[in-house]
Design a protein around this nucleic acid. Sequence first.
DNA 1: AGCGGGATTAGC
DNA 2: CTAATCCCGCTT
Length: 200
Amino acid sequence: MAAGPGGRLPRAFYARPALTVAPELLGLWLVHDGPAGRLAGRIVEVEAYVGVDDLASHASRGLTGRTSVMFGPPGHAYIYLIYGLHHCFNVVTDSDGEAGAILVRALEPAADVPGRTDGPGRLCRTLGIDRTHNTLDLTAEAWGPLWLERRPGPPVPEVATSPRIGIDYAGEWAARPWRFYVPGSRSLSARPRRAAIGRA
DNA sequence: AGCGGGATTAGC
DNA sequence: CTAATCCCGCTT
């Protein structure tokens, strides 16, 4: 789906099923304007969480205070604290009332980014994203401090898939190949990298 | 009010 | 391999 060059992705981009949007996030840029200035990275790894039936999704426990943003309109940020230590950044997809979301797991950092962006917790810490950004509108309609945009450059040459990480509790849903990544990227999250090396 | 657990990470 | 650390959701 087209977005103007250098422009924030429009609501319509997010207003589609999570499994459709997820591979299209690869190669796009996540940008945060914060106290440290503008920090950005190119998305190379994501995971789709498809809705209330998906036992790996927080939305499978229904509409609660934490998950309400997932059930809301697309194009907003869903950010939560995990293990009391790390933040995870998601984009909300699907139509209002449906609970699709996509976890951003790894970025290739822009040249001036101070720190690592391989891994969902690390990229939030390095870009300065935390729970105060939860529910923020990522589109140009809000013109907030956090957004996704398309930047000039070669397209992603190839998209690979694998099962999602760290959701073994989800039964049969754990096997679905709903992790999407750019194979060969140096910035993939650590756990899958170890797994890949271990298997090789 | 209390308790169990988590879409992770760093350090031994 | 495991501790860290806290919010949330569910039970009492």
